[in-house]
Each structure stands twice: as structure tokens, then as C-alpha cells.
């Protein structure tokens, strides 16, 4: 089985390298070691989204039974998105689960994940907290996602208000990421975030 898996991955690797998306810088695929069982994908945050300008790394694990079972993919770069866990980076995408087809390839999967960044599915959330914010306060969601893109994915928009609040919590001795999660979760209300952190 592994034979087919390795063969497929090698071919797909070539396919991705030759594709126009790689030339355009939208996606990238790299080997982690020589075993062909683990790869690292990169997708660029799509334009006109809060993720624009960010570079997101993905961990791709190829199972023994590939391509008859889907690859296991999660975000390494922290991201604020309804269908991605802000804690583990796990992705909720149908083609990575029951809608997987053996004829799909890493290239199509990477493009689908990129498309997911442009069009979230808040009704099928992976991260309930993020999804709630997406539904209830889209404006704040966009700002938060932009802020995370700036901090973790090298995005351009620096939101000073948010940075200040994170700094306030840092001064109280809270760990940076923990502080950011608390603030993001409580709609950037410093008091409630503090209360939660110290309760």
C-alpha cells in the first residue's frame, strides 16, 4: 500500500511544483524528510479577506492508505477562523473527511483550504467561540482575524489597540498567546478577559 502512497505523493509533488499557483505564490509544498509521509504546505492568505498578506503553514501527514484515505492536515500557523481550531489548528473541511475521493490531490486540497479562508462556514464550525463571534459580530471578527494574521502569519495590518491590550495583560504576567486568546474570546473587553484569566 505504501508503495502507491509514495508514488502518488511523488507525482503530486511534481504536479504542485509545476502548477501555476506555485508560480503565482498562492500555494507551496515542501518535504519535511525523505520518507514522503510528512510534508509542509504553505498557503497565502487570499486577497480581500482578513488573512490577506499572511503566510500560513500547514502540517500534512500522509497515511499508509493514501490516496484511499485522506491526508491529515492541520494549520501550524495560528489562525482565527470559524472552521479552524484556534487551539490545535484542526481543520473542518468535508473533503478531508467523508467527502474525500481517491482522485483528489494535495494541490486540490490546498486550494480548497485556501478557498475556505475566503468563504467560512460558520454553521459547521470547528471552533465554536470563533464561529459565534463570526455570526454575532462580524466587524470584530474581521479585526481579530486581521490581528492574528499580523502577529502569527506576518500580515501587514498592525492593530495598535489590540496590541496595547495584550501588552497590558503581559504586564500582569500573563503569557502572550494566552492573553490574546482570552481577549479575542471576550470580544476585546479587557475586564472580562482579565477576570477569566485570573479566576
Amino acid at each position: 500500500m505504501a508503495n502507491i502512497a509514495a508514488k502518488r505523493i511523488k507525482r503530486e509533488f511534481k504536479e504542485v511544483m509545476k502548477s501555476e499557483e506555485v508560480a503565482g505564490g498562492a500555494i507551496k509544498l515542501e518535504l519535511v524528510d525523505n520518507s514522503w509521509t510528512e510534508l509542509q504546505g504553505t498557503i497565502a492568505g487570499p486577497p480581500d479577506t482578513p488573512y490577506e498578506g499572511g503566510t500560513f503553514l500547514l502540517e500534512i501527514k500522509v497515511p499508509e492508505t493514501y490516496p484511499f484515505n485522506p491526508p491529515k492536515i492541520r494549520f501550524i500557523t495560528k489562525i482565527w477562523h470559524p472552521n479552524v481550531s484556534s487551539v490545535t489548528g484542526a481543520i473542518c473541511l468535508d473533503i478531508l473527511k467523508d467527502q474525500w475521493a481517491a482522485a483528489l490531490t494535495l494541490r486540490t486540497v490546498l486550494l480548497s483550504i485556501q478557498a475556505l479562508l475566503s468563504a467560512a462556514e460558520p454553521n459547521d464550525p470547528q471552533d465554536a467561540v470563533v464561529a459565534k463571534q463570526y455570526r454575532d459580530n462580524l466587524f470584530l471578527f474581521n479585526l481579530t482575524a486581521r490581528h492574528w494574521t499580523n502577529v502569527y502569519a506576518g500580515g501587514p495590518s498592525n492593530i495598535t489597540d489590540f496590541n496595547d491590550m495584550v501588552q497590558r495583560l503581559l504586564d500582569m504576567g500573563v503569557e502572550e498567546h494566552q492573553a490574546r486568546v482570552a481577549l479575542s474570546t471576550y470580544d476585546w473587553e479587557l475586564e472580562r478577559a482579565t477576570e477569566q484569566l485570573f479566576s
Binding site: 500500500m1 484511499f68 475521493a101 481517491a102 482522485a103
Partner: peptide
């Protein structure tokens, strides 16, 4: 045929029987 065989083996081992689908995308 080898791929079909492998596809069926993986599906059967996962307990799928009546609902095994074609390997093509969105089919």
C-alpha cells in the same frame, strides 16, 4: 483494477459496505 481493489479493501476495513462510492471527485 488494482486501485479499485485497494479502495474497496480500505472501505470494507472501515466498515463501509452498501455506500462505497466511486473514487472520482464529487462522484
Amino acid at each position: 483494477n488494482d486501485c479499485w481493489a485497494m479502495h474497496f479493501e480500505v472501505q470494507i476495513m472501515q466498515g463501509v459496505s452498501n455506500t462505497i462510492q466511486c473514487m472520482a471527485q464529487e462522484c
